[in-house]
Simulated scan of single mutants.
Amino acid sequence: PPAATPSPTPHAQEPAQAQAYAAKLALLTEAERLASRRLAIQQERLHTMQGLREQGAATRQEVDNLRFQVLQAEADLSRARADVREQRMLMARVPAAMPAPAAPATPQPPADEAAPAQPGTALAPFAATAVQALVRPGDWVAQGTEVAVLQRRGEPLVHAYLPPDKARYAQVGRMATLHFMDGGKVRAKVVGLMMEAQSPPADRVSPLTPRTPSIVVKLQALEPLPAPYHIHQLPLDVRFDWVASRWF
Rank of each mutant, 00 (worst) to 15 (best):
H11Y: 13
A142W: 08
Q198Y: 13
R33A: 01
H159W: 09
A227C: 00
E62S: 05
A128E: 05
T209R: 11
L90F: 11
H47W: 09
P213N: 11
R246N: 03
A221S: 12
R37D: 05
G51L: 02
N65W: 12
T212D: 09
D64L: 08
A122D: 13
T106A: 12
P235Q: 01
A26S: 10
N65F: 03
L208E: 15
P8M: 09
T106Q: 14
A40R: 05
T59M: 09
T209Q: 10
V141E: 07
D76N: 12
A40P: 02
A221N: 04
M91E: 13
R239N: 09
W140K: 11
G154R: 10
A92K: 10
R85I: 11
A18F: 03
D112V: 09
E86K: 07
P137A: 09
F240Y: 06
R246H: 07
A105Y: 15
L222A: 11
P1Y: 15
L77I: 04
R168F: 13
A4S: 12
P164D: 00
R81V: 03
R79Y: 15
R67F: 03
D203Y: 10
A197Q: 13
P207R: 08
L162T: 02
A103K: 11
P235R: 00
V238W: 04
E54V: 01
Q220Y: 01
G154E: 05
A40C: 08
W242S: 05
Q43W: 09
A227N: 12
A26P: 01
